[in-house]
Simulated assay, not measured.
Amino acid sequence: MLATESAAPPPLPGGTSGSQTATTPGNKDGYSFASAPRAVQAQRKKYRDPNDPEEKAVPQNIMYDRRIYRGSTYASPALPLGNQPDPVALERQADIKRRLRAKRRAEAQRRVRTPDPVPGRKHQDIQTELYLEELSDKVPEAYAATQTDAFLDRAPSPLFIPQKSGLDVATQIYEGELFDFDFEVKPILEVLVGKTIEQALMEVHEEEELEMLRRHQADFESRRAAENAEVQRLEDAERRRTEEKERRLAEQIRILREKQEAAEKIAARAFAQSYLQNLMPSVYASLTTNGYFYDAVEREVDSQFLPWLTGEVQKRLDKTKAARWVVDDILRSTIRRMAE
């Protein structure tokens, strides 16, 4: 007998409730759980406070972030400087390879080759060794056994002569059938003669070209010498004209300077004459008043005779005065004695 049991779901955190359905093995829906709708409890605010320093966004520059790739995403990544090959070493290796190729090419050209066969014939590889042997791709095999006697000296090794294999075949070749010297040597002679004539013509052309170059060089040297002489003559003439021009210019400057100096002297003389015309009488009068212009006799009388005469008169007066004083003293003493 099947039974269905329904029970209330356990309470959810936060005071919410839900519904739960449990079934027995006969229930086709299985286990299911459904909770009642509820608002999301967000931990952050619905808006940002511009005055809150903790919520201010810190500006960051992604150019300093190591996770950001720098450069073009389309270009191939540049190799480190240490992994790049040395261009000097690469050029040296390329030069060595080029020289080796040129050396091999020159050796291949110097190697003597077999001349091409005449029309109607072809070359065939043959054996030119002293002993002929049959050539085959299959290596011959054989079993052999031997037993040497004891205490026997080894015989000297005989000269090795390869065993002849194959069949000896002979054929008759008549004169001119295999090789015609006159016919075969004709192309070689044509090549040799042609090369010789071509080389001779090239040498003749080179000599003519060298002679023409020498004539052209001699003509050029003569024309250049003539041009150099003409240039030298023109330079000398130009130098003479320049020197003559400078000399005449210097002479003209000297003449103008002398004329200017003469004009300045004449003007200075005229100015001095006009200035000294009234100055000289006043100067002479002033000098005469100050005693700079005097009569020699009068000056000698004033400076020498008059002082001497004054001194002599003063001496005479002093003597007269002394004599009078002595006479007066004698008279007073005489009168005093007479009065006594």
Results as ranks from 00 to 15, higher is better:
Leu2Arg: 02
Gly15Met: 08
Thr16Gly: 06
Ser17Phe: 13
Gln20His: 08
Gly26Ser: 02
Asp29Trp: 03
Gly30Lys: 05
Ser32Pro: 01
Gln41Lys: 14
Ala42Ser: 03
Arg48Leu: 14
Arg48Thr: 13
Asp49Trp: 11
Pro50Leu: 08
Pro50Phe: 06
Pro53Ile: 07
Ala57Ile: 13
Gln60Leu: 07
Asn61Trp: 12
Met63Asn: 09
Tyr64Cys: 07
Tyr69Asp: 15
Ser72Gly: 03
Tyr74Asn: 01
Ala78Phe: 15
Pro80Asn: 10
Pro80Phe: 04
Gly82Val: 15
Pro85Asp: 04
Val88Glu: 10
Ala89Cys: 00
Leu90Glu: 13
Leu90Pro: 03
Arg99Leu: 01
Arg99Lys: 02
Arg101Tyr: 00
Ala102Ile: 06
Lys103Thr: 01
Arg104Thr: 07
Arg104Trp: 07
Ala106Tyr: 06
Glu107Cys: 02
Glu107Ala: 10
Gln109Cys: 02
Arg110Tyr: 00
Arg113Leu: 12
Arg113Ile: 14
Asp116Tyr: 02
His123Lys: 14
Thr128Gln: 11
Leu130Trp: 12
Tyr131Met: 08
Leu135Tyr: 01
Pro140Leu: 05
Ala145Gly: 11
Gln147Thr: 11
Asp149Phe: 12
Asp153Ser: 13
Asp153Met: 12
Ala155Gln: 10
Leu159Trp: 11
Phe160Trp: 09
Pro162His: 03
Lys164Arg: 10
Asp168Arg: 11
Ala170Tyr: 14
Thr171Tyr: 08
Gln172Asn: 06
Tyr174Glu: 15
Glu177Tyr: 12
Asp180Gln: 10
Phe183Cys: 06
Val185His: 00
Lys186Cys: 05
Lys186Ile: 04
Lys186Thr: 05
Gly194Val: 04
Ile197Ala: 01
Ile197Cys: 03
Ile197Trp: 00
Gln199Ala: 12
Glu208Met: 05
Glu209Asn: 08
Leu213Pro: 00
Arg214Lys: 08
Gln217Val: 12
Asp219Lys: 04
Asp219Ala: 02
Phe220Pro: 02
Arg223Tyr: 05
Glu227Phe: 05
Ala229Phe: 01
Glu230Lys: 15
Gln232Val: 04
Leu234Cys: 00
Arg241Pro: 03
Glu244Asp: 09
Arg248Val: 07
Ile255Gln: 14
Ile255Asp: 02
Glu258Asn: 03
Lys259Leu: 04
Asn278Ala: 11
Thr289Pro: 00
Asn290Lys: 15
Tyr292Asn: 05
Phe293Leu: 15
Phe293Trp: 14
Ala296Thr: 15
Val297Glu: 04
Asp302Tyr: 01
Pro307Val: 06
Trp308Lys: 15
Thr310Met: 07
Lys315Val: 15
Arg316Trp: 13
Ala322Ser: 06
Arg324Glu: 10
Val327Ile: 07
Asp328Trp: 09
Asp329Ala: 11
Asp329Gly: 09
Asp329Phe: 03
Arg332Ile: 09
Arg336Gly: 14
Arg337Ala: 10
Arg337Tyr: 07
Glu340Met: 07
